[in-house]
Computed example of a mutant assay.
Amino acid sequence: MLIKLKGVLDERTLAQIREKLSVAHFVDGKLTAGSDAQKVKKNLELRQNNDLVGEIHQLVLGALKNSNEFWWATRFKAMLPPLIAKYEPGMFYGSHLDNAVMGGDDLRIRTDVSITVFLNGPGDYDGGELTLDNGFEVMKVKGNAGDAVTYPSTFYHHVAPVTRGQRLVFVNWIQSAVSDVRKRKILYDLAILARHLRKKGQGPESTELKLTELCHQNLIRMWSQM
């Protein structure tokens, strides 16, 4: 289930993040990769255990938590500290699968959902498409600055080589309260349906809206792992 979230970060938040990154020290991205991923990874990342990482994480997480669609798409339970990645010409991240469990002594999570937040726009660089393979089709994503995309961590994916400019992204992994992607999709569709009914003028006494919300909330109770 690939979900595109439009305009999660506003211009003010993006400007704050870019200002912080303009003086940041980036290191070889291989430092955060497993043994297999190291063979196909060529990018730069903001050094972990850096105060800047925490500051940017709070800015992005605050914006995400204000997005209904983020909650609907992920059923957010826990999130790791992020990776802030930079790709310059010649850099890429070859096909790989995210580890099923990530984290350290302070926090370890099961990775159910992966998220990429685009910190600059597609006009700032050529190439660099996030390419996802679910086993049936290949999907390419290149979002506007402030957009995000969520997808199951079970997808193989890669970042195409950047040929011009600079690609900046916030990358993270989420443990969902609903681990089964099929169940998350049903809940997401019901949330979208309820929103659609409200936009069409259905009020709280509407039979269609009441039944939709009844199914939605009861399935959340049935499937959530809190």
Rank of each mutant, 00 (worst) to 15 (best):
residue 86 K to H: 08
residue 139 M to V: 14
residue 87 Y to H: 11
residue 96 H to M: 00
residue 115 I to V: 15
residue 106 D to L: 15
residue 114 S to V: 07
residue 136 F to T: 14
residue 111 T to V: 02
residue 111 T to P: 00
residue 104 G to N: 10
residue 106 D to V: 12
residue 82 P to M: 04
residue 72 W to I: 04
residue 123 G to K: 10
residue 73 A to M: 04
residue 143 G to M: 13
residue 64 L to H: 01
residue 140 K to C: 11
residue 99 N to E: 08
residue 142 K to V: 08
residue 82 P to V: 02
residue 91 M to F: 06
residue 102 M to I: 06
residue 83 L to P: 06
residue 104 G to Q: 07
residue 85 A to N: 14
residue 103 G to K: 01
residue 111 T to L: 00
residue 95 S to N: 12
residue 83 L to K: 08
residue 78 A to S: 13
residue 67 S to D: 02
residue 112 D to T: 04
residue 127 G to I: 03
residue 70 F to L: 04
residue 137 E to K: 14
residue 129 E to C: 10
residue 142 K to G: 09
residue 128 G to I: 10
residue 130 L to N: 10
residue 130 L to G: 08
residue 123 G to L: 11
residue 104 G to F: 09
residue 66 N to W: 01
residue 66 N to A: 05
residue 75 R to I: 08
residue 94 G to F: 05
residue 88 E to K: 11
residue 74 T to R: 11
residue 114 S to T: 15
residue 70 F to R: 03
residue 71 W to S: 13
residue 101 V to H: 14
residue 68 N to F: 07
residue 145 A to H: 06
residue 144 N to F: 07
residue 94 G to S: 06
residue 88 E to T: 14
residue 103 G to W: 01
residue 145 A to P: 06
residue 99 N to F: 01
residue 117 V to D: 02
residue 130 L to A: 13
residue 83 L to V: 15
residue 138 V to Q: 15
